[in-house]
């Protein structure tokens, strides 16, 4: 019981005592209108630098994806459907998942990536050495290195605002409450009700993504309600944190090292004249 509770409580696992409840995002894409207010509010509040202005031809998406200088990204998908003259729009605001089992944090060799008392994952800019390990470890392709300063950057879930009792800038700016912020437990409950509602209304394609504590990352701190398969939105359908395999990886590396030592001995003793 105690062990279970701890497993679900990443802040306690990271050594925070008497910490606030775990906070997160529930992004309900069924009511996203694609206004990109979240993208703008995030950039403004966090003083994230501009990272290129171009027209991509990807529907209304000229942002392209999350990155070191894009912490909220609204995806636009145009599908054949019944909504508007045979066209269905899917819009979804993506963000760092603040994983329960966060690969970025596990592999970081400097301790720059840390778990906050809110259970979120942040980079400490003054500690990060730009090694880039987190970039290749994140199973969602979220975190990246910023060329201008060589450091890794991603969504902080507005750590500074949370500390001051405010809600994150993106959630504050969202006009439809597609981005909902709150204690993760409450969000999960609300999300469950919302899916049930949509199913009752005949929208059987509605599904939750990242809400399940038994999934490959132990459940995401930022999860979503989607209207199609995750990969349609550019999300991995079944991500698993790489460090789950690490004990076996270490074991094989250990056996391999021992074999190398043995091979060196064998090469020297055999065939001695």
């Amino acid at each position: 019981m105690a062990a279970e509770a701890r497993a679900l409580d990443p802040a306690a696992l990271a050594g925070h005592r008497d910490h606030p409840p775990r906070m997160g995002f529930f992004t309900d894409t069924s009511i996203c209108i694609g206004c990109k207010a979240c993208e703008v509010a995030c950039k403004e509040w966090n003083a994230v630098p501009e990272d290129g202005l171009l027209l991509t031809g990807m529907s209304y998406d000229n942002t392209q994806g999350l990155g070191a200088s894009t912490w909220r990204h609204v995806a636009f998908i145009e599908q054949p459907g019944a909504d508007h003259d045979g066209l269905r729009w899917l819009m979804s605001s993506d963000v760092c998942k603040h994983c329960t089992e966060a690969a970025c944090l596990d592999v970081c060799p400097t301790g720059a990536l840390m778990r906050t008392e809110f259970g979120t994952v942040i980079v400490q800019d003054d500690v990060c050495n730009g090694c880039g390990y987190c970039v290749s470890a994140c199973p969602f392709g979220v975190i990246d290195r910023r060329p201008s300063d060589g450091g890794a950057h991603k969504c902080t879930l507005c750590y500074d605002r949370l500390g001051a009792g405010l809600m994150p800038a993106c959630a504050k700016a969202c006009p439809t409450e597609s981005i909902q912020f709150g204690p993760l437990d409450e969000l999960r409950e609300r999300a469950g009700q919302r899916v049930a509602e949509l199913h009752d209304a005949g929208r059987s394609e509605a599904r939750l993504y990242g809400e399940d504590p038994d999934d490959g990352v132990g459940g995401a701190g930022a999860f979503f309600l989607l209207l199609d398969q995750p990969e349609v939105y550019g999300l991995p359908p079944d991500p698993v944190v790489t460090t789950r395999e690490l004990p076996r990886i270490w074991r094989h590396a250990g056996i391999a090292a021992a074999s190398l030592a043995l091979a060196a001995v064998a090469a020297c003793v055999s065939g001695r004249r």
Binding site: A103, S136, C138, P139, T242, E245, L246, A253, G254, A257
Partner: peptide, 25 residues
Amino acid sequence: AAYTSALLADTAVPAWHDARRELPY
């Protein structure tokens, strides 16, 4: 000589992570 295999295998990169069993050898 061996730890670098774990360095690559312990990532989300499919070709490296999938090769985790053979990479050390």
